[in-house]
Amino acid sequence: MIVAEQKPLKEIIAMTSPFKKLLIVGCNECVTVCHAGGRKEVEQLAAALAMAAQKDGRPLEIKEVTLERCCDPEYIEQVRPFIDQYEAVLSCACSVGTQYFADTYPTKWALPALNTSFMGGSLAQGIWAERCAGCGNCILHETGGICPIARCSKRMLNGPCGGSTGGHCEVNPDIPCGWQLIWDRLVALGRTPDYAKIMAAKDWNTSRDGGPRKIVREDLTI
């Protein structure tokens, strides 16, 4: 899933304070699961912004709505009947959703309430970690199912750097060395000879080096 976290409240207050009528939109997908922008977080944020306005003596009308998904046009359309009553949309979706609002409603301000952080999953309740960097050319079958692009701080392809110490990364000792994890997996799988295979330099054209990416499935288009 996409993992995000709410921006500092003061930053959100500053970006929303010019507006008197605000539509706060949450998303029922990834940001609900990572407790950043679901219905509950929308409710909390609305209460906080209402209090900030009340305290400053600013009039502020807020409507809260949480859509099933903010990265599909049909759901973004659901706010069309009432969006004209509001000056701006404060999106509690990931940055994809925020941009969908900007694209769909060109005359409305689309403001991000979240910092979209990474693609990952939960390690435990309240803890999330990055697992995919979206490089566009998966090599997990060659690295024991551990991604060296997302989990090695230097995105090394052929073993660890000299900063790997005791299984930890030199960037931050709280980060496990990605290549130590790969080695441990290869040992567990009985595939340690795979470690000696040299991986060619990665073609980053499938990543951001090729510009913004798009996938077209002709068999699905209407």
Partner: peptide
Amino acid sequence: NPVKNGGAAHKA
């Protein structure tokens, strides 16, 4: 509570 002394904020 400073919120009590403020303006006319309200929830739609």
